[in-house]
């Protein structure tokens, strides 16, 4: 099949209980920029057991020209086989040139499972996307080799060009006035719904507020020295209503659990305020936090890399500075926020 037979940019909109997730709107932001450069249509695909029209209209208001909603009870939760069978079917039918999905647990499973079958190129965890003006190819940029370098990848000959996009690496698209678009609802063939994986239940996370949703984050690095000292960081976090996060070093030592990990191998965060305590600023970590609006760093080493991305830095001993910060904030008798809430 010729490349010219493929057109349009697709994004995979993810839903939970019939409500679209934030990543869907982030992908619309990405997709709109690419569709504009290529002067092509932007289409959102949704797999679900059923989504209300109002919800699908939001995708159009936020940038989609077309919405394809594939609906079947078997698609309520992500299951690799039926999701991939439907996506493969849609690819054959509509021939999209580009497919973007979030680098989420769903996207990072569905996309490789589907790309293999479609003999398509797939790039993981992109943080920048662009169109090469000479060829119209998708330029997919991602951190590589543990975040030491950025690599730009392209898929010159195969179609579709597929990529997963790092969540929180861009702002979600906002609704625009007077946008029009088409909604297509599809009832898939039951043959596509076969699944050898069965969904049997769900155990929600104990911590309600994920670090990714926090407006403020206090983040501890190896400079915290031992597990007992985490309490001090937690106190500061509670004081300003921040969530607590950690570098990989801290998580690898078992001082905080993996859901706290920020960086290339953990979560990407874009909070309003990031306060790093004893964080050296390895590139792997910076890859997960440098888009924070305001970055504050406290570190004993004046040469620490973290100061290169910080807006405000204190060179000093965190075991002296942090208690002083807590006293200072309390003295100003600012309202004490609820633990971990934002």
């Amino acid at each position: 099949m010729k490349n010219s037979e493929f057109s349009d940019i697709w994004i995979l909109a993810e839903q939970h209980n019939g409500k679209l997730l934030r990543i869907s709107y982030e992908l619309l932001t990405r997709g709109m920029a690419l569709a504009k450069k290529k002067s092509c249509k932007l289409c959102a695909i949704v797999f679900s057991s059923g989504v209300e029209n109002d919800e699908l209209e939001k995708l159009i208001a936020c940038g989609a020209d077309k919405v394809i909603s594939v609906e079947n009870p078997q698609l309520e939760h992500f299951l690799p086989e039926p999701y991939s069978a439907c996506m493969s079917d849609l690819i054959e039918k509509y021939k999209p040139e580009v497919i973007l999905a979030g680098a989420t647990s769903t996207g990072r499973t569905l996309m490789p499972y589907t790309a293999m079958r479609a003999c398509a190129g797939l790039t993981a965890d992109c943080t920048q996307l662009d169109i090469e003006s000479a060829t119209g190819n998708l330029l997919q940029t991602r951190p590589a080799i543990g975040g030491n370098i950025m690599a730009t990848i392209k898929t010159p000959d195969r179609r579709p060009q597929m990529a997963t996009v790092r969540p929180r690496s861009t702002k979600p698209s906002e609704p625009m006035k007077n946008r029009k678009g088409e909604i297509i609802r599809i009832k898939p063939n039951e043959k596509l719904m076969l699944s050898r994986v069965k969904y049997r239940g769900f155990i929600p996370l104990e911590e309600k507020h994920g670090i990714q949703d926090a407006e403020k984050v206090v983040l501890v690095g190896r400079g915290i020295k031992k597990a007992e000292n985490i309490a001090m960081a937690r106190e500061l976090a509670d004081c300003i209503g921040a969530s607590l996060g950690a570098t990989r070093d801290v998580v690898d030592r078992g001082w905080l659990s993996y859901p706290h990990q920020v960086g290339l191998s953990g979560k990407t965060i874009t909070p309003k305020l990031y306060i790093g305590l004893g964080v050296s600023g390895a590139i792997q970590h910076l890859a997960g936090m440098q888009t924070a609006e305001t970055i504050v760093a406290v570190n004993i080493d004046p040469e620490a890399q973290i100061f290169k991305v910080a807006d405000f830095g204190i060179v000093g001993d965190i075991f002296e500075i942090v208690p002083a910060m807590i006293r200072e904030i309390r003295a100003k008798s600012l309202p004490v926020s609820v633990t971990g809430s934002t």
Binding site: P143, T152, L286, F307, G313, V315, G316, E320, I321
Partner: peptide, 23 residues
């Protein structure tokens, strides 16, 4: 391979840091 590395580069990171020394 369907994909090709088009280029690699070092990520740029820099902000103006207001630094206070408190050792």
């Amino acid at each position: 391979s369907p994909t090709r590395v088009a280029k690699i580069f070092r990520p740029k990171v820099a902000r103006e840091c207001e630094k206070h020394f408190a050792k």
